[in-house]
Design a binder for these strands. Structure first.
Lengths: 146, 146
DNA sequence: TAGGATCTTGCAAATTACTCGCAAGAACAA
DNA sequence: TTGTTCTTGCGAGTAATTTGCAAGATCCTA
């Protein structure tokens, strides 16, 4: 970590270490959640420091952010971003799928449109298996009662 | 339009008609842009009315929103949402691709994970052809000069 | 087709999620 | 150690929505 920072003239501070280790231990996390985690052991750390450090750590390539919904970004340690996020529009559950599942899609976009897709940056949105089934049942019931 | 609204006990107001026709004429639009369009002919209409009506029209299925980036949602008329959005991380350009380009991907997620994907809800993120080429050139140049 | 229940609107204030300016406090190269 | 430059904490500032309310509109009903 010190290496990546020093390469760009940046410094290794305790706050930076804490933010990075919070992101690593949380898996997916919003800035707010990172702040909460960091503060659970070091209450003095300011929210804006967390925001700034997430940005800095992203610039040096140690963390990445993904959009899972509404607006807020969620952060990941760079080395952990190895899966797609399947976000359920109904229950909000966040599922995973291997990046390979999108390999053909990515190739198609590259071959036909020259577009180099980063499939992890945005969530894949839809209905999880559970909610899809629930909706099917409801639809059948509605059909009968009408 | 009156039909869809009345079915749910909602009313057809001039503001609603204006918001829907603004969305239809704009294609992609943020709430702010919709408001601007509406106000160009009817200055008195309040921004919160626009927000509320976009939500209402979405509930009755006449418009949909998509996340193209950062935070803000962009709205479409429901009948026009027939393409993927390819958002360039570098230059911000928004390209289109037919939904069919994702058909295999959608089937894979459905077959393997039971996940029913709505590919239009989030943008597909990556580098557009132009920026991908630019980056390639730069990478080659950097390689030589180092 | 007037009356009234209920939905909507406009307005202003409140919220949410960040972002910024600044002075005091660290890192770290020398 | 020391000075330069990066960082932090803090408070204030923004941008994008959201909400509470009273006045106004829509539309069902008789």
């Amino acid at each position: 970590m010190a290496h990546e920072l020093h390469e760009k003239g940046l410094r290794l501070t305790p706050q930076r270490e804490l933010v990075l280790s919070a992101v690593r231990s949380l898996g997916h996390a919003t800035p707010e959640e990172v702040a909460e985690k960091v503060r659970s052991t070091h209450p003095g750390i300011n929210l804006s420091t967390v925001y700034r450090n997430l940005e800095t750590l992203e610039n040096v390539g140690l963390v990445l952010h993904t959009h899972l919904g509404h607006g807020g970004a969620t952060y990941h340690a760079a080395e952990e971003l190895t899966h797609l996020h399947l976000v359920c529009s109904d229950c909000g559950a966040i599922g995973d799928a291997p990046i390979d599942a999108a390999a053909n899609f990515v190739n198609t976009l590259s071959d036909d449109y020259g577009f180099k897709t980063d499939v992890t940056h945005f969530a894949i949105y839809g209905l999880c298996a559970k909610c899809a089934e629930k909706n099917d049942q409801k639809k059948r019931t509605d059909g009968k009662t009408k």
